[in-house]
């Protein structure tokens, strides 16, 4: 008995090690991201506050470039409003507003923490539940697609970037309209990969890739990237496509969170359909 107690005393650090290692593995395996337990949400808020403070310092160094990007987008949007169009027809017409029902709304947000050099990358945004952000909302920026919201606390949220092992986004080729899936191989944050495109479709170098609009999280036609090279895989009859993202995720600063007003309805319909099958 005495020896047993001495054994436990001498090797207490080994038992502590096993316990903590088990805890780490539990944290990793659970959803590959933390569960929304009280501790992790508190940690999220704390990390958010601190990151926000430090970001304010960092922000001054990129003021000019982010300003430039905003001006550019402003100019593009200004070109789209009604006053910048001249009517070519002499006929008068009525704009019937009730024909349109708004489907997407955008919540503007700022990135306060980001990584691009990991195998799995995340962004932290300064908007959370009290601003109307929910889990699984899409995130876009003026130049293209950014990711999907995975964890929300009161004031902040985490976004799973497209630069992630588990990121699978539905995209299509703007010219041929053929759809496929966007993944990231972890090598370079400027390049992505497309899979599930049948090789019977003639692709071209330089083709623009946009979102397909098949998922409820993103509107159709958000820019993704340009095809840089493609190869036929003889075994599967599918293409191996390399694309270059339009967005430099390392320089990204302001983003929009996409809110889909019809999402619940779409989800419900899908669920009912699955039940009936």
């Amino acid at each position: 008995m005495h020896n047993l107690i001495r054994f436990f005393k001498r090797n207490s650090h080994i038992f502590l090690f096993i316990f903590l290692e088990g805890l780490s593995i539990y944290l990793i395996s659970n959803n590959t991201f933390y569960q929304s337990t009280a501790i992790s949400l508190f940690a999220n808020e704390l990390a958010g506050e601190t990151n926000l403070r430090f970001h304010k310092i960092e922000h001054y160094f990129s003021l000019s470039s982010s300003n430039e990007a905003l001006v550019k987008e402003n100019a593009r949007l200004r070109a789209q409003i009604a006053s910048s169009y001249v009517s070519y027809t002499q006929k008068s017409f009525i704009v019937n507003d009730t024909v349109y029902k708004q489907q997407f709304e955008y919540i503007d947000a700022k990135i306060i923490k980001k990584t691009t050099n990991k195998r799995n990358n995340y962004f932290m945004l300064n908007k959370g539940r009290i601003h109307g952000v929910e889990k699984n909302m899409g995130v876009i920026c003026p130049d293209g697609i950014v990711g999907v919201v995975v964890l929300v606390s009161d004031n902040f949220c985490y976004v799973m970037s497209v630069l992630h092992q588990d990121s699978r986004l539905n995209i299509k080729d703007a010219r041929t309209k053929i759809s496929g899936t966007l993944i990231w191989d972890g090598k370079n944050y400027l390049n992505g990969k497309l899979i599930d495109i049948p090789s019977s479709i003639p692709l071209q170098k330089g083709d623009t890739i946009i979102t397909s609009g098949f998922s409820e999280d993103f509107p159709q036609g958000i820019l993704v990237g340009k095809i840089t090279s493609f190869k036929k895989d003889k075994g599967t009859g599918l293409y191996n496509v390399d694309i270059r993202f339009f967005v430099d995720y390392n320089k990204l600063e302001y983003v929009y969170i996409v809110k889909n007003f019809f999402k619940n309805e779409q989800k419900q319909l899908t669920n009912n359909f699955v039940k009936n099958e």
């Binding site: 090690f17 903590l20 290692e21 805890l23 780490s24 593995i25 539990y26 944290l27 990793i28 659970n30 959803n31 590959t32 991201f33 933390y34 992790s40 940690a43 999220n44 704390l46 990390a47 601190t50 990151n51 923490k113 990584t115 990991k118 799995n120 995340y122 932290m124 985490y158």
Partner: peptide
């Protein structure tokens, strides 16, 4: 916690 990873650093450093 601060870099938004889920326990990888904890596992390797322990």
């Amino acid at each position: 916690v601060f870099s938004g990873q889920s326990g990888i650093n904890a596992l390797s450093l322990t």
